[in-house]
Every structure is written in C-alpha cells, then in structure tokens.
Amino acid sequence: MSATSSTSTSVDGLAVHVRGLTRRFGDFTAVDGLDLDVREGEIFGFLGANGAGKTTAIRMLCGLLQPSSGSAMVAGVEVGRHARELKRRIGYMSQRFSLYDDLTVDENVEFFGGIYGLEGAPLRERSEELLPLLGLADRRRTQAGALPLGYKQRLALGCSLLHRPRVLFLDEPTGGVDPVARRRFWDLIYAQAAAGTTVFVTTHYMDEAEYCGRVSIMVQGKLVALDTPGGLKALTGGRDMQDVFLRLVEA
C-alpha cells in the first residue's frame, strides 16, 4: 500500500474520523453536519429510519459520492480526494446481493480477488482460508444464483473481505434471511472485528444493534445519539434497542 503524506495523517487509533460531513441534493440536505469517530477493530452500528441519510453517508465514506462540505478520513485516507487509495483499503457489501448469479462461487471469488490484484497462489490461499469459514467450502462449483439467500450473503461478505480491508462497510447485510442465518453472519462479523477489521454496519434489526460496540442513530440527516447500547438505554429509558430506536426517531 502506498502511504503518501496526504493519506497517512490518520488520527491515531481511529478507522473513521468524520467532521461536519454534509451532502446536499439541490435544496434537500440528505446528510447534515455529521460528526463521528470509529475506533479500529470496533463494530459500529449506524442506525436510522429509511430515508434518514444513512445510505448517502455510507456512499460518501466509500468514495462513491462527493461530500458537499465537511471532511472524513477513512482507513487513513481523506475521502473525496484519494478515492482509489480509499477503495483499496475498504470493503463494501450492500443490501442488494451484488455478485454474479451466473458465475460459480469460485468464479465470483476469482473475479473480485482479481479486481484487487489478488491472483494465483495468494488468491488460492485466501479463498482456502475464507470459504470454509463462510461455510461455502463444498459449494465452490455452485452458481451463486442457486445458493440460498443466507449463503449468498456470506459469499458477498467473503468477496468484500478477500483483499483484507481495514474498514468493512455493511449496508443492511442480513435483509430477508432467517434468525439462524443472521446469527451465523454475525459470528463472522465478530471474528473479523476480533482480527482487527473495523466494521461499520447499518441494520433495521434491533437485536443486531445489540451486537454492536457502539450505535449511532440518525434522524433526518443528523446524528441524534451515539453511545453503547447500554448507554443509549440508560439515556432514553428504553427497555431494549427497539424501544430506544422508537423513542429517538419519533421524538
């Protein structure tokens, strides 16, 4: 990885460092002065109602969208100025299953590995390591389209992990699957965080919010709360995260 002077000015121990991040579309402000810090190796829950601006914020942090104003450092790279370097250091998995249905598990892995310059022996080693972990070792020749949804999501996660990203963005990664599959998915997320990967995750499942180290809640483009799940319950007097969420969003 190249570390030019402009990309190594990360704040110590912070994987994500955001100050005043704003994005306007015409006269609509989708994200309004966002401030947040995420520590390395943390699982950070990014919550909010639909249309609160989460996806716009994530798209900026991934280098897909230019901020209107404000600044953000992700994995030591200034967002919006060094998009390619940023993209080498992050992984992204969206709510939509965005792999190739007509390619096999192995072919998808080869494609996404190749995009990051991973091929030959290093790619083989990495997939030997990841596929058993994902429970896909015996499905390598199956076309992705033929996999059950839970497996597809784990494959998508695997493809976003191939290049060992420092920060992993998950945009509603577990939509539509059963509780067992979700639990299994979160075991994988925990393992990644334990290995030092920072996980930045959005979800609508409030039991999943409980799994996060810290949780932020966004309402109409602004951050209205940011604390541990326990801290948020104490602050709002909510019984569980569901209750906390409803109180903050409907306030």
Binding site: C62, G63, L64, E85, K87, Y92, S94, S98, L99, I115
Partner: peptide, 9 residues
C-alpha cells in the same frame, strides 16, 4: 454489480 465494482479500485 456495477455499484459493487465502483467501490473497488
């Protein structure tokens, strides 16, 4: 998948 490729280098 186009969006997925856009978050890669």
């Amino acid at each position: 998948t186009l969006e997925q490729i856009r978050v890669t280098p």
